[in-house]
Design a protein around this nucleic acid. Structure first.
Lengths: 167, 167
DNA sequence: TATTGTTATACTCTATAACTATA
DNA sequence: TATAGTTATAGAGTATAACAATA
């Protein structure tokens, strides 16, 4: 490892820098060589880009993911869904409340075990998901361009590996 | 700060799957090929790993980053700091309040322009940063192992590129 | 007793707008 | 007028603990 120790995270404009007595370029020190830090910054940028592409459709990446998961796993329970997206079941309650209220998801008790709900997409939910899909695909296309076709598979493989690791 | 959280996309245990009538493995559909999705999942996993390593020291990645930035740029103003970490100045106010209250950061008006604060680390702040550094390095070492030495530079380069893109 | 899902509660992170004090 | 920082406020996202209904 060869820490560069210095990098421009963001240039401060010359005027304000002079005014502040602060250097033109901010020194991010050891962070510059840290995977975790850049993972965080990349995710923030990606999230913001996603939000720009999806403006008009009110659906955060998390909710969109919930919709996709319900679509692909019709009848899934809330607890199973919460496990899949890595959040607590109590976190999911208001999310599903709003998705049901907006008519995108149906929630019915199972016949076998009346403690569980069966989650399914309504037709409206499928439509919204499809519309969202298009926006998300444009966003993905931009990411693809940034990553480049040559390194795409490797990059994805590493991301999957990081996500799968629980140590 | 004690985020528990489970594995994203993890397998549902056989028993509960049978009980739920849900497949053993959750189908994530189109998400599986999406960079943005896996970026998000990797970041969540990395964050949780960071939290586990840093348990005992109450410092989120964001606050740790603020500390590092102040350490490397002593005398930086709050607005410059907020620009560097990409959040609003009002977001930073309570963060700095708590860092100052905990004796980790000093905040003094500049002599030239009495609207600005000069942020600096106190000795206690430097100590905490050093302790944090050790935890964070262990965390980084794990990430390094996952990524592998061969692909590390390329992976970092792509992350930087994504973070730098504002389209 | 154990599990599903809800409720009550709380904390973090984030932002916008209006404000103050200084320039 | 413009800038640095605070305050008021709000909303998303997250969690834990206690609870009701059901198993």
């Amino acid at each position: 490892m060869t820490p560069r120790q210095t990098a421009a995270l963001k240039k401060v404009d010359a005027d304000s820098a002079a005014r502040d007595g602060v250097n033109d370029v901010i020194d991010i020190g050891m962070l510059d060589d840290w995977i975790g830090f850049h993972l965080r910054m990349a995710q923030i940028a990606s999230f913001q880009s996603f939000a720009r592409h999806a403006q008009g459709i009110e659906l955060s990446p998390g909710r969109f993911a919930a919709l996709v998961l319900i679509d692909r796993n019709p009848g899934i329970s809330q607890t199973a869904l919460s496990r899949a997206i890595g959040s607590d079941k109590s976190t999911l309650t208001p999310v599903l409340d709003s998705l049901v209220k907006r008519g995108l998801v149906s929630r019915e008790r199972t016949h076998n075990d009346r403690r569980l709900y069966e989650l399914k997409l309504t037709d409206a939910g499928k439509n919204v998901m499809r519309a969202m899909h298009e926006h998300a695909q444009q966003h993905e296309k931009n990411l693809d361009t940034i990553v480049g076709p040559k390194d795409r598979a490797l990059f994805l493989k590493i991301l999957r590996k990081i996500a799968a690791t629980r140590e």
